[in-house]
Amino acid sequence: MQLADLVFYLLALLTVGSAAVVAFSRNVVYAAFSLMGTFLGAAGLYVFLAADFVAVVQVLIYVGGILVLMVFAVMLTHRIEDVQVSNRSVGTLPALLVVGAGAAILGYAVVTTPWRTAEPVPAEATTRIIGDLFLGDYLLPFELASVVLLAALIGAVSLSRKELRRE
């Protein structure tokens, strides 16, 4: 087995194992921290897929932004003594049946579909190409994305501020 294959399997194990902890842990703090393993493992897989810029964006935004927000929300919404049993699950068996059946169908589709794969081109630095595409072919979605982010920012502020209404 080549070294690259070994690293791939380790990254896949990190991603899936951390996702399993997120899905099954009884403690929401453990779930939040093991989400970091999933995000970092996925970033490593992106590097394997020759997507260096996306991998860096993943680490910056997911690990640096979303995960910190999640941990903040966990800390803000739980009294510390509740943390032990704070993340209960209900309906585990029916959910396992549904998810297992869906995963089996998807896995069957993955195995049996004759994917038209091309031989991967040698990896190159993608930052310049992605920048050109964002300011060229994808200019309208790019600008719309900035409007969406502004709307999300204003929405979050107006949802979470205290009402200052004169009674």
Partner: peptide
């Protein structure tokens, strides 16, 4: 990734 960030921000504001 961008939409996930927006969704997480609004979702966590709603949770709070």
């Amino acid at each position: 990734i961008m939409l996930a960030a927006a969704e997480a921000v609004v979702g966590l504001a709603i949770v709070l």
